[in-house]
């Protein structure tokens, strides 16, 4: 993934002297003092607040048994928690990611709250139960905060299981996911009719189809929204990293493209949390910088869209 740090204009530097830039520049110890200011958004079902920037684990945490790479991921996760992160999202589909997350969590003496989110991904309902239990073992957790049905696979069967688990108090929230714009119509039907708490789909500065129906419907139905592929799997950096950050980026506390892309997402009123994935500490610090400072207002969001369309 191409993700260059670019020289900022003086105006952008001055504008981003808030906690966002400070957090990414001064390191974890001092940054932890700024955790009070981390941007949080409420889960509509309960009002519980979640940090607006979470962490995905597709590809980035799939390092198998490689001990060096596992240790490197421990540091990524340490940076995430140090900067006030809480939501970690994974799936049994992601190879060894769940196992590596469990390994990292066991090695961190983290005192920050963790919001654990994984998925069930199998065509068989009975196997889904075993899969969730395996995920609990891999993560080292007795209860997930959020269980989601991955890409709507056998959603009817798994929803039955998840509702049962929720009723028993074995999971706090349940939801459904899809990615890269697939099956939006099916997702919409589930959102409209089923008693779920969360929904996860793709939304970013270029992929804005969700603005038409999914995001308004989530707001109407009181569903929390997790946004995946916030950087379009790195394609946004391939396309824009060499282009100048807009002069006004500092006005909403953005010191780099990553923060601008993320703040665009979480500034949508219906979005609860964005989950960028990374295998690098410096990128994690950049991402978590988006959890601080001002969010772009509607005018600034429109300005960003106009700006990138000119690039």
């Amino acid at each position: 993934m191409k993700r260059n740090r670019r020289e900022m204009s003086r105006r952008a530097v001055l504008g981003s002297m808030g906690a966002a830039a400070a957090a990414s520049l001064i390191g974890p110890r001092l940054a932890s003092a700024a955790l009070e200011g981390v941007l949080k958004k409420a889960i509509p079902a309960t009002g519980e607040l979640l940090p607006a920037i979470g962490m995905g684990s597709w590809i980035t945490f799939n390092v198998g048994d490689d001990s060096d790479l596992r240790e490197a991921r421990v540091e990524v996760l340490r940076a995430f928690f140090d900067q006030g992160g809480a939501v970690i999202d994974s799936s049994p589909m992601y190879g060894s990611s769940e196992e590596v997350i469990g390994y990292c969590l066991a090695r961190l003496d983290n005192t920050q709250p963790l919001f654990s989110a994984t998925k069930v991904w199998t065509p068989l309902q009975w196997h889904g139960v075993r899969q969730i239990e395996t995920s609990q073992t891999l993560w080292g957790t007795a209860r997930f905060d959020l269980l989601q049905i991955h890409n709507l696979l056998n959603w009817e069967g798994h929803l039955e299981t998840l509702l049962d688990w929720k009723a028993q108090g074995r999971v706090r929230y349940i939801g459904v996911t899809t990615s890269h714009g697939r099956r939006h119509e099916d997702l919409e039907k589930i959102m409209a009719a089923q008693p779920i708490d969360f929904v996860q789909f793709t939304y970013n500065v270029l992929d804005r189809e969700a603005e038409q129906r999914l995001l308004p419907l989530a707001a109407e139905r009181g569903l929390a929204v997790i946004v995946n592929r916030p950087f379009r799997r790195g394609a946004l950096f391939d396309r824009f990293a060499d282009r100048p950050l807009p002069e006004w980026a500092g006005e909403c506390g953005c010191a780099n493209w990553a923060q601008l892309f993320l703040k665009f997402i979480v500034s949508h009123p219906a979005v609860t949390c964005a989950i960028p994935a990374t295998s690098r500490v410096d990128h994690m610090l950049e991402n978590m910088g988006a959890a601080y400072g001002r969010l772009p207002d509607p005018n600034m969001r429109a300005r960003l869209i106009r700006y990138i369309e000119t690039l």
Partner: peptide, 14 residues
């Protein structure tokens, strides 16, 4: 693919 080239190469070496 669910892994990076770097991770794959390290796995081949191991």
């Amino acid at each position: 693919l669910p892994f990076t080239k770097d991770v794959f190469f390290r796995l081949l070496a191991h």
